[in-house]
Amino acid sequence: MRNTTAIMNRELLSLFCSPVAYIVIAGFLLVTGVLAVFTGSFKPGAPATLRMVFEFTPYALAFIVPAIAMRTISEEYRSGTIEALMTAPVSDAQLVLGKFLASLVFYVIMIATTLVYLMLMMVYGAPDLGASLAAYIGLILVGTMFVALGVLASSLTKNQIVAWMIAAVPLLVFVWFSGWISRAAEGWWREVFRIVNISLHLDQFNRGLIDTEGVVFFLCTAAFFLFLAVKVVESRRWR
């Protein structure tokens, strides 16, 4: 546990020492800001909810979250610091978990910046706080899964851009196209793409429902990706 927090803290320190962190947060705020305007969430007479903003947020997260996680492990490979790290008494699982938690903390901080919109809304109206809470829980669950995939991608290569692509491409498929594919597909494919349709799961949270199927889906896929990441890091010891 101590090793995991040590790795997490160090990773966060590095993240916030580099300009990437601030660019990512600024980019995210820009996207959600544009969404807030284009969805007309702040129009007079519109319902006081961020639901429309959050509905489109995953489309942006599919690009942004892989960028948060892409450097975590691949940078260790590239700079060779993995040698110093793995010759200290640190287990592979501690490494992966520490990197994952650091990215997740960063993600939560990034998501928290959108609370500004909610506060603005509270000034001018009365948004449903319960539903907003559910929406935030949904976003954090989505983030957990995305970050885990990002860390897995990062463990596969020493090139950050490649790591970004490995994570972003499947996410784009799942988020942007799975609805379309599940409508076009027949038989069991249809069912598969309905289950992996992230927007569909998230929609439940946006409505204010904490949906068990969604919770299980996001947490289990996250655990699965992390498990794979540990195995990838471990495999280096047997090659």
């Binding site: 320190l13 590095s14 700079s79 060779g80 610091t81 993995i82 040698e83 110093a84």
Partner: peptide
């Protein structure tokens, strides 16, 4: 190669 984190 004495790998270390340059930002620390």
């Amino acid at each position: 190669s004495v790998p270390m984190y340059p930002e620390m």
